[in-house]
C-alpha cells in the first residue's frame, strides 16, 4: 500500500506543477515569461507523473520506458523553447 501512496502523492504534485504551468501561461505578461513557465513547470510536472507511474508500474521495462519518455520530453522541450524564443526575438528585430 505504501507504494500506492507514493504514486498518488507524486502524481498529485505533478498535476499541481502542470496547473502552475497553465496559470503561468495565462497570467504572465509576455512571451518569454510564459515560455519559462511553460517549459519548466510542465517538464517537472511530467517528470513527477512519470516517477509516480514508475513506482506504480514496478517492472523494469516499464520504468525504462517512462524514464526514456521523460528524458526525451525534456530534450525536445528545451530545444523547442529555445528555437521559439529565438524566433520570437528575431521577429522583433526584422520589421
Amino acid at each position: 500500500m505504501l507504494t500506492d501512496w507514493w504514486t498518488i502523492a507524486l502524481v498529485t504534485v505533478g498535476c499541481a506543477f502542470f496547473l502552475a504551468g497553465t496559470v503561468g501561461l495565462l497570467r504572465f505578461p509576455d512571451v518569454h515569461t510564459r515560455l519559462h513557465a511553460l517549459t519548466k513547470a510542465d517538464n517537472v510536472g511530467l517528470g513527477l507523473i512519470c516517477l509516480g507511474l514508475m513506482i506504480h508500474d514496478g517492472t523494469l521495462p516499464g520504468i525504462l520506458r517512462l524514464g526514456f519518455i521523460w528524458i526525451l520530453a525534456i530534450f525536445a522541450a528545451t530545444v523547442s523553447a529555445f528555437l521559439i524564443a529565438r524566433w520570437h526575438e528575431s521577429a522583433g528585430t526584422e520589421d
Partner: peptide, 19 residues
Amino acid sequence: ADRLLTLLLFGTTTVATLL
C-alpha cells in the same frame, strides 16, 4: 509565438494524459 507555445503545452500535457 504564443500560439507556438501551445504546441509545447500540448506536447507535454497530452503525453502525461496518455500515460
